[in-house]
Design a protein around this nucleic acid. Structure first.
Lengths: 240, 240
DNA sequence: AAGGAACAATCTATAATACAACTTTTCGCA
DNA sequence: TGCGAAAAGTTGTATTATAGATTGTTCCTT
């Protein structure tokens, strides 16, 4: 038997959710009943449910039952522990970002409505009136996540949330250094991306975004050149 | 007591890893010993470890013990799959795929080496000699995941793994219907993408890939047109 | 002495049972 | 009808037992 019984339980419940048979907020059968259904002991049922609970698909209430979770990002972002983020390569991440931001800004420019334009505008204003170390990272993050949200593509937005979460936990300490000399230029980039979105100029928005990210990547390469090479060599050697 | 015993176990082990007391690759104390240390039963120990295993911090080996995982992306990114399952629309997913496959095929064409070309070639051959329902989905998946792997961008590859996991779990049953009439064309697409990769023609590989995915999307829209519209309307209304 | 095969110890996987703690439902009483 | 207490249902934990897998050791063969 290649599949453990707890995995059988895991797959079964996951299947219930995927198929829509059990929707967010609904209660699952009790552990005893699941055991009968799948012909396994309660121990195995609990093991499977424990996993699903760990990744945030279900919530257990002592004495109350087990419920399918609402699909909220907070539910699963919590599983990120700092220890798990060592191995992420910044340049690989940014390469993916370049592709995905290009897409999201296009979709955003197509679908954005008046209220959303305003909200983006407020962020740009705050960027331009930035005081001292007024947490440019937060504004940067907020701007790009809003753009991806306004793309109306939920999957795209979720991936962006993951990316920024990883960025926040890996890059944050170094962020000030990376953006130090190019902050003004960086803000100007956001400004013209914003303008292109406002005017629904899809192509221009994409071009400016790709250019923006390439500048950020270049800048990072300059600052972290030696450190990066050393890291990359090590990873390369390890991978073979 | 607000904290369950299994949570106590969870926190204890997480603490061991974060503090560096237990490093990646090392074995944890056995379940029985952990029970003694924390003064809880083995059931509670197992529940806690089960969770840690679900989020990819540790790996259990039956008969062998429990080990701290290497901190790799693929270990924890899979956590997102269930959540992405919830509110993911096929067309949204494919929109993202179009962007990411374009990137991965470019990188693949740049970096691919002889042995990898061969492996891709074997898949193409199997596609062309396809017998009956010889699981085209598996070949399709394998081809694209290899391309993303050969892109040498681990993060990109990980996101692709998630995407295909979601596709497998949501689209698989309908896959035969979607590809029925266009199977030959679909295979031809893969063939010419493969040829472009072989000749390291980065631009052509990208163009063919984007074209391929747009065809797939179009085809899906035709087949599932009515069903899709209904779903979309419902989601729209729900979202407001 | 080196290599390998059998054996013992260790450990996780699963099961069955029991009880505690908590929640939800039901039902009787005012 | 409304309220509260009992009852039923459900998860959390503990105990005990067995099966199955891995690891480590011993001892035999060459």
């Amino acid at each position: 038997m290649t599949k453990t019984k707890s995995q059988k339980v895991y797959d079964y419940i996951e299947g219930l959710v995927i198929s829509g048979e059990k929707k967010p907020g609904e209660r699952l059968p009790s552990e005893a009943k699941l055991g009968e259904i799948l012909n396994v002991s309660r121990v195995s049922v609990r093991a499977g449910i424990e996993k699903l609970s760990a990744i945030g698909l279900v919530t257990k209430r002592k004495g109350g039952g087990t419920y399918v979770n609402q699909p909220k990002n907070e539910n699963y972002l919590s599983v990120f522990t700092p220890t798990l983020l060592h191995n992420t390569d910044y340049l690989e991440l940014m390469e993916v970002r370049r592709a995905l931001d290009a897409l999201s800004v296009q979709l955003c420019a197509q679908h954005v409505i008046a209220g959303e334009k305003k909200r983006l505008g407020r962020i740009i204003t705050r960027m331009e009136e930035l005081e001292e170390e007024d947490d440019f990272f937060e504004l940067d993050k907020k701007f790009h996540l809003l753009v991806s949200k306004y793309s109306r593509n939920r999957f795209l937005h979720n991936v962006h949330i993951i990316i920024w979460d990883v960025l926040q936990k890996t890059l944050r300490p170094k962020y000030a250094i990376v953006t130090k000399d190019s902050l003004a230029e960086n803000i100007a980039h956001h400004k013209r991306i914003y303008d292109a979105i406002i005017h629904r100029d899809v192509d221009l928005a994409r071009i400016y975004t790709v250019h923006h990210l390439e500048k950020v990547i270049d800048n990072f390469k300059c600052v972290y050149n030696e450190a990066y090479r050393a890291e990359k060599d090590k990873a390369q050697k390890k991978g073979t």
